[in-house]
Design a binder for these strands. Sequence first.
DNA 1: TTTGGCACTCAGCGACCGCGAGTGCCAAGT
DNA 2: ACTTGGCACTCGCGGTCGCTGAGTGCCAAA
Lengths: 339, 339
Amino acid sequence: MLEERRLAVLRAIVEDYVSTHEPVGSKALVERHNLGVSPATIRNDMAALEDEGFIAQPHTSAGRVPTDLGYRLFVDRLSGVKPLSPPERRAIQQFLDEAVDLDDVMSRTVRLLAQITRQVALVQYPSLSRSTVRHVELVALSSTRLIVVIIVDSGRVEQRIIECPGPVPESTLADLRARLIAALAGRTFSSVPESVVDLEEGFILDDRPTVHAVVSAVLEMVTERLDERVVLGGTAHLARYGESFPIAIQPVLEALEEQVILLQLLGEATTPQGVTVRIGHENPIEGLEATSVITAQYARGDRAVASLGVVGPTHMDYPGTMSAVHAVARYVSRILDEQ
Amino acid sequence: MLEERRLAVLRAIVEDYVSTHEPVGSKALVERHNLGVSPATIRNDMAALEDEGFIAQPHTSAGRVPTDLGYRLFVDRLSGVKPLSPPERRAIQQFLDEAVDLDDVMSRTVRLLAQITRQVALVQYPSLSRSTVRHVELVALSSTRLIVVIIVDSGRVEQRIIECPGPVPESTLADLRARLIAALAGRTFSSVPESVVDLEEGFILDDRPTVHAVVSAVLEMVTERLDERVVLGGTAHLARYGESFPIAIQPVLEALEEQVILLQLLGEATTPQGVTVRIGHENPIEGLEATSVITAQYARGDRAVASLGVVGPTHMDYPGTMSAVHAVARYVSRILDEQ
DNA sequence: TTTGGCACTCAGCGACCGCGAGTGCCAAGT
DNA sequence: ACTTGGCACTCGCGGTCGCTGAGTGCCAAA
């Protein structure tokens, strides 16, 4: 009973603080939520919650504010689901359906997610590690410059320009192209290295340097760029917090400029299904101590290929954001499956 | 004589204001620059400059601040060139030389430009309109889904996924691929439409829908995406202005999220050679009234292919930024030529 | 365990004030 | 015709002061 009410109080505090962005006091609490008790009772509960570390006072004689721990409890045990409305769902689907290629899907997704959550959105390109190579193309841009293009079944296209040690005759090029296709087409990305390693041996000595250059380019593309790309959108929402909220936007913007950090944010989504939430300092990344990160994985067929999510202030609307991220991830999965 | 000194005063005001970010008064002016006259004289000049609209007072009894018009005069007639130091030049070249493909060149350029100017950087991908098609590839992703890839001589790779009305036999695909290559390879992008328009006629009626889908995809890629992509970096610098400068960052961030706007910013670079500067409200774009945009075109061979530049507050270091933008544009041109 | 009462704290707000940087104007000097 | 020192004036900024009110903690009674 008493434990139960305390949790109700915490929930009420979180909800009020999220909507008003102001410390919430005992009196306001009983007025806005119909907990059937007096402010004094609530005060006792609040004192207890503060002892346990779930809420804090910015200064004496101010209302309470949830701590990271408080948000954590709220997310884990208190927040209901807040499903999207049918019109919202329809709008999402329609918007994503209009995408013409993978780049378009990604950029539409990030814009969509930023718009409906009113937060900074991150979307990772489908991982290549489990994709299969559909086709390899080798085109001469000049006598010594080649471009290697790898087309992946997810619709992703990887490219790389190589400078060859010397001019490459068309015959060598055609030969190499044919062998590359034979060696790689249908292979998963992670098995590419072994398939390609002895390719060099089939060539005469003169061609070896060129072949070597191409092969190492392919290897680099396959290893270095595995999960490389993350697109980002909605940074303008960061500036929306009417100035001087406990959030300084410069470090956040700086952190978000680093691809590596974006990948960390998305990559550590351990939960295979469902939505992952990291709150405030739970987040190991410097500059993002005052933000929460909500991510979900999306899938192609039956296996997860990448993640997407949003970054926002710790005092965000968790239920709403979580269901939005979840929904968008599902729709992206669906789009990828259709294709 | 008197006219000359007035200009010197304006220059001094701009320089001081840019470095201190505080309104500058007559006394401070004579102390920091050795204009050989008394504060009172300077006051007269300042009053004249204010009448002419080059400077303004934020409020009575404060120093003066340059107006957009003042900056304009400064840029047009007063600012010297501030060449980069040899180590800087070397660092730029070295950093850009390490790029492995076009995407890499673009992303390195934007990071570089943001870093050395400490401002938001924009870099446009090379325009396709004057590029020539190097190769076309057509790959089946599934029985009814194709991916069309166009490889351009600048190293840019365009792709698009198409849903075909029905299954496409490999023979048709090979035929179509061959004809596409024959029709397009070596063509400039702008001449693609005419080369491709009667391609459909060579096919039997059954294949027509597929061919049609592919041809229209090619047309769309060629027309819609002509100059589409702009990459953006260094937005964190926006937040650096120690809070509450006459610059609200939210509208700026919002504007910078729109590709269309980025293209406008870069696209209106009229000056074929050299650096274009647009100051404050000279800039027609909503949200960017308090920012200046400095752009330069870069070239491949002897013709300009696209622009790059930076966006910053009107009180920026114009000479330094202009020479940085200029230098980076030249180095990018050089990199593109080498390739 | 809840509740009303009560004393206490303290951030925020507005009023007030003095300082000083900066100005405009003027009359005298060059 | 400029320049310059002098001088009165303006007014933003920063600090102090006091009040108000929201909010608290504690206690004694229900």
